[in-house]
Design a protein around this nucleic acid. Structure first.
Lengths: 250, 250
DNA sequence: CCATATTGAATGAATGTTCAACAAATACCC
DNA sequence: GGGTATTTGTTGAACATTCATTCAATATGG
């Protein structure tokens, strides 16, 4: 189905990178706030399944990262946040480092599943797909202050840790490839004279930069402002596809 | 002099934010590598002036941040890097935190002085000024892997520390104001129909995002690639000011 | 000699990890 | 089905390590 559009993005044929996509992305929304409410289908209390406990601890880790930053995130704080005892993390995860890696993996999987699903829902038209990708980045499901702060905490440590570095390419190679493919497709349609690679790099960099701005919280940059800036970019680069009035919704 | 251009940027009339601009920006280039070579004009060995020792320790701190990340940067490592003994930091700076703040302050001052000087040299024409600002961001003087890594280390901790957050606005409010002013000026000249604030936000976010990419080092993004992407952006948004061929130098 | 920069060992606090004891759930047996 | 054993999740205290900070002793330049 939608073979033409799929060829443009060209990622569905090689689903290599993602190791463990969380089966239900929808859950994360309900777990955003509390971090200890178990599933309706899961037994609560003592008999929470191993996987549930892990999720619970991961959520508490994201909380701690967002609240105290990477360098001050301690296992005691994570355990307290999850309302569990001190030694629990070393039981479910082997070490603090493994917990952090699992947390990053979790966020990367969630992010990846999110934009892929957005892309799928966008239909076959490249211009719609590109817009959908941009909008997905500022969706409440992935673009929370809490999560942005956690991302940034990992970014800060990524350069000196290969493991983080690999995972921090949430906007990874396949994501980049999709962008390049879409930019090229739009260029072919309307005869723009830019380099797709350069344009795609600029766009994805802008998205990341806007995330950074949102996270910092300084200046009054909101999700709406950021999205608007990104859509304005689309309108400037692809004037025949995105009218300025389409971007400016107000 | 150049009154018209100055009015566009509108920052020279209110030099409020910068507390201590390092007097000589040129020095930083020579100190990039070694981190212990003292000035020719300064005495070396035991009698290095208080200020020189501080600079030396700050450079060693940047080294450590770049090499080991924020969370693993220790005073011992800084002291070793500066070829000095353990207790020295607490003598010249009062605490580890004060050392880190001084380091960030140093980088912020350097960055600020750098783009301000670029802006000054660009002459009165807004289009040249904007291009100069973009190019300044990828100049070897400020855009080293070492320094980018240090910046990112601070970004990661900024959300939970107000002091860092304030300083991490290296691209601070006045920088943003200059961008907005220039975007507005170009728009008035050629009748573009974008919102200056939105365009300026997108541009500065892209620059930050490109820095992030450069720092990560993943993918083969170089200073040239990044600059090219940024200039392509200018060519797309301000087609009457920047021809595509001007951006594509190759 | 005096003031001051520097050293390096001592100290104490913070924190990741281990582990023996405990509790809950499940399996097993009669 | 009820009682017992076993497995497994959980706890919290003990332990070891790392690291910022302190400070008395020392070296240096004026």
């Amino acid at each position: 189905m939608q073979a033409g559009a799929m060829d443009v993005t060209g990622i569905w044929s090689a689903p290599g990178l993602m190791k463990t996509i969380s089966p239900d992305v929808s859950r994360t929304a309900s777990q955003t706030a509390g971090s200890q409410a178990p599933q309706a289908t899961e037994k609560r209390g003592r008999k929470a399944s191993k996987e549930t406990r892990r999720q619970q601890l991961i959520e508490a880790t994201i909380d701690s990262l967002a609240r105290r930053g990477y360098s001050e995130t301690t296992l005691a704080d994570v355990a307290d946040g999850a309302r569990l005892s001190r030694g629990i993390v070393n039981f479910h995860f082997e070490s603090k480092e493994k917990l952090l890696i699992a947390t990053l993996q979790h966020m990367a999987d969630e992010y990846s599943a999110h934009w892929r699903s957005s892309l799928e829902r966008a239909g076959p038209e490249p211009s719609r797909q590109l817009k959908a990708l941009v909008e997905a980045d500022f969706d409440r499901a992935v673009c929370t202050k809490r999560k942005l702060a956690a991302w940034c905490a990992f970014w800060g440590e990524a350069k000196s840790r290969p493991t983080y570095q690999a995972l921090c390419g949430a906007r990874d190679e396949s994501y980049q490839r999709v962008f390049v493919g879409l930019c090229r497709a739009l260029g072919d349609e309307a005869g723009y004279d830019y380099d797709p690679h350069s344009t795609a790099l600029g766009l994805s960099a802008m998205l990341e930069g806007l995330w950074l701005r949102l996270m910092m919280g300084t200046e009054q940059v909101t999700r709406e402002t950021a999205l608007r800036a990104a859509l304005d970019y689309l309108a400037s680069v692809f004037p025949k596809h995105y009218g300025r009035e389409a971007a400016t919704r107000s």
